[in-house]
Design a protein around this nucleic acid. Structure first.
Lengths: 215, 215
DNA sequence: ACTAAGATGTTACCTGCGGTAACGCGAGTC
DNA sequence: GACTCGCGTTACCGCAGGTAACATCTTAGT
C-alpha cells in the first residue's frame, strides 16, 4: 500500500532524525556550544550534507535540539508550578527546579542560553545561535505569564501585568542563576529563599541604613 | 625630549584607537552585531591588521566597544539611583532610565546583549561575542548589589542577599525590557510601574482567583 | 527478472570569516 | 647616509557553514 509505504519512510526518517539529534546532543555536551557541523556529523557516523538535508541549516539543527531540552525543562517547571501547596512554596519549588536543572547540566544550559563560549582553539565562532538565543527565556516568560494570569486575581490590566511579571520573574531567575552558577556564592536553597524574599516584598520592607537616604 | 615624544606617541595612538572605535561603532550600528572585521576596517579607511594591532582580536575590539557603552549606561543608572527621592521613586527612575536607553538605541542594546542576530546574507556567524555577552548584565548586577548593600539594612547575610537581589533585579529588568522592546505591549511608564509593583510585593499580596488553588 | 525512481550517502568544492606573516615606506635619530 | 621603528599594505592560512555533483542501495512496477 502506498500509505503504509510513506508511513514507513516517514517513521524511518523520524528515527534517523532522532538519532542525529542525540548524536548532536552528545557532541554539544562534550564540546560545548561551539561544536561544528563536521564534528556532529562525525559523531553520528555520517557526513555533513546529511545533516543539512535533515535540518536545513545549522539554525534548524539548533532549533530542533533546543526545543527538546526546552520542552523537557518546561515540563518540569509546570510540574513544580502545579504542585499542591501554597503559593510561596510553589514559587520556591519552581525556582529550585530551574536551578537544579541548570546545575545538573550546565553544558546544556550554556548551550541554550549562551551561543558560543567554549573553545580555547583559534576560530570559535560559536553555534550560530543568533535569534535562537532568546526563545527559551521568551517561552518561559510567556508560560509563567499565562499561569499567573490564570490563577491570580490582579484586578484590571491583569493580562498585561501577568505577562510583565512572567517575563520579569523569569529574567530574575535566569540572571541570578547564571551568576550563581558561575560564582557559586551560596547554597541553592539560600539562593531560592533570597529570590523568594525579593518577590515577597522584602525590598520594599527593608529599612534604610543609618546615615544614608536609602535606596 | 624622550618623555614628550612617548607622550605624543601615546596620545596619537589613543586618538587613533578612538577613531577606530567610532568607526566600529558606526558599522555595528548600521550592520548590526554581525559586522565583520573587514567591514569595520573598511569603514575606518584602513585594513584588518591594523585593527588587530590595536585590539588584539575581535574579542578585544568588542570589549573596548562594549565598555564605552556600558560605562555610559552605568553612569546614567547611577545618576538615577542617586537622585534625591524616596526609594520607590528611585527604583522607578532607574528602571525607566534603563528602558529609555534601550529604547533610544536598540541597535547598541542588541549589540551589547545579543551576540549575532542581524544579517540575511549567507554567513552570519556573529560578532564572536561568546563570553563577552554577559559582562553588561554582570556589571549592572554587581553595581546594583553594591548599592543595595550600602544603603539597605538587611540584617545578617546582607552582603549575600544584596548581591543576589542586584543580579535578580537586573535580570528582571533585562528580560522584561527585551520582551517589551520586541512586542511593545504597553507604555514604558506602565512597564515601569508594573515592575515596581512586582518588586513591592504585589505578587505575594494578590489574591487567588476563584476556583483554583492559586499560584 | 530487469529497469526506473528515489532515498541515502559520499567526495570535492565554494565563499567568507578570523587571524597572521612578510613585506613597503616614510619620519625622525645618530 | 645607514638605522630603526611605527604605520600601513598584500597575500596568505585554516576552518567554518553550506552546496553541487556523483555513487549506491533499496524498493516498486511491469
Amino acid at each position: 500500500m502506498d500509505t503504509t509505504q510513506s508511513t514507513d519512510q516517514e517513521r524511518s526518517a523520524d528515527r534517523r532524525r532522532r538519532e542525529l539529534l542525540e548524536a548532536a546532543d552528545r557532541v554539544v555536551l562534550r564540546d560545548g556550544p561551539g561544536a561544528s557541523m563536521n564534528a556532529i556529523a562525525a559523531e553520528a557516523g555520517i557526513t555533513k550534507p546529511i545533516l543539512y538535508r535533515h535540518f536545513g541549516d545549522k539554525g534548524g539543527l539548533y532549533a530542533a535540539l533546543a526545543q527538546r531540552h526546552t520542552d523537557a525543562l518546561l515540563d518540569s517547571l509546570r510540574a513544580a508550578l502545579d504542585a499542591p501547596a501554597e503559593r510561596r512554596e510553589r514559587v520556591e519549588a519552581t525556582l529550585d527546579t530551574y536551578l537544579a536543572a541548570i546545575e545538573a547540566r550546565p553544558q546544556v544550559y550554556r548551550f541554550l542560553m549562551h551561543p558560543a563560549e567554549g573553545g580555547q582553539p583559534g576560530g570559535d565562532q560559536g553555534f550560530d545561535v543568533g535569534k535562537h538565543s532568546a526563545p527559551l527565556l521568551r517561552r518561559m516568560g510567556e508560560e509563567l505569564g499565562k499561569v499567573i494570569e490564570d490563577r491570580l486575581d490582579l484586578g484590571p490590566d491583569s493580562r498585561r501585568l501577568a505577562r510583565i511579571w512572567g517575563h520579569g520573574i523569569v529574567g530574575m531567575m535566569h540572571a541570578a542563576g547564571d551568576w550563581w552558577l558561575g560564582e557559586r556564592p551560596c547554597t541553592r536553597a539560600e539562593l531560592v529563599r533570597s529570590m523568594a524574599d525579593l518577590l515577597w516584598g522584602r525590598l520594599a520592607a527593608a529599612g534604610d541604613k543609618v546615615g544614608g537616604p536609602g535606596f
